Amino acid sequence: MRLAIALAAMATGSCASTTPRQIGTEPLVLNAPGYLDFLAVDGATVWATNESRVEHWSTDGRLASVQLRQPCGTMAIHSQSVWVADCKEMAIYKIDRRTGQIESIVRTGLASPDGETNVVAGGGSIWVPSETSGKIARIDPLSNRVVASVSVDPGTHYLAFGMGSLWAVSSSQQSLQQIDPRTNRVVRRVALGRGPGFLAAGEGAVWVQEQSDGTVARIDPTSGTVTGRVKVGKNLKWGDIDTGDGRIWLRTTDDQTYAIIDPRTLAILARMGKANGSGAIRYTDKGVWTSEHDVNTLSWWGFPTAH
């Protein structure tokens, strides 16, 4: 039997935004050989990095595969293209979403050649941490050229775009930096806990995994104040984080596949699935994708169709 778990206290009335969403506790699990890791949502489908390729998947299975040397980190989808870093080439590949053809290679360099990094889209641009010493490259997606270089703290290689700003985390400096895309300058720094890593901007705040502390920090985007923390486990290495539907979706390595957090109260609403190693998580309005590269699977946790 397919069970469902409520994600918040029950609400009354019709299906409004305050009504709690439900999610299946028994996901659709797809066999995904190799090392399928980072995810990018493309409508009802998802793109994923693998050992030497980028793959396009649906709930019916793999749709396409694009050969690269070593794709790594989170990808960005902008217009008709997928933008993905290659840790061997130290460059960004632009791939046509419809045909799977490589359109362009932008040789930016990478700040984190071990693959723990983000390529993000926002402000009409593509952004990638490009130098370990502290640089972010800004790419024009029309000309496929680097149009600006942003000076940031050393060791910055985690990015998110939201609420009009680019947000960047340096794990070594334990800092969150707010970057104004109009000026390409850091306008604020926020001190973080130990081992900060992946982050998301949404649901009214910036959310940062403090991986070594096992916490998620909530930062007010206007004041730069840390307004709360939620302890999820002993650590959060390595996992992933996303926002959507009035929830924070946290991929974990220990204790469960992922946790669901209320952004207002910071209560952990649910712990979903068994621990199955590291991977990524991405929210959609019809369900949640998770990857589990240690057990070679890709999972779809669908919302009930009636809502």
Rank of each mutant, 00 (worst) to 15 (best):
V106P: 00
H157A: 10
V29R: 04
S165V: 00
R264D: 01
G13I: 02
A91Q: 08
A16H: 06
G233W: 00
M75V: 08
L36I: 09
D96K: 09
V208W: 03
G273H: 01
V187C: 05
T284A: 05
S125M: 14
D140R: 05
L68M: 15
N118Q: 15
H157L: 07
E116R: 13
L192E: 08
A6G: 09
A275Y: 02
S130A: 15
P33I: 12
G279E: 10
V46R: 06
G13T: 03
E55M: 13
E103N: 12
T117H: 13
R69S: 15
V216T: 05
A201G: 11
A9I: 06
C72E: 15
H78W: 15
L142I: 14
Q22S: 06
Q101H: 12
V216I: 10
T222G: 10
V216S: 08
L266A: 01
T257K: 01
T18E: 09
M163D: 11
S112I: 01
F303E: 10
L110H: 08
Y93V: 02
G115C: 13
K88A: 14
T19K: 08
L28S: 03
L192M: 11
E51M: 14
A8E: 10
V208L: 07
L269I: 02
F38G: 04
G122I: 02
S81G: 01
P27N: 05
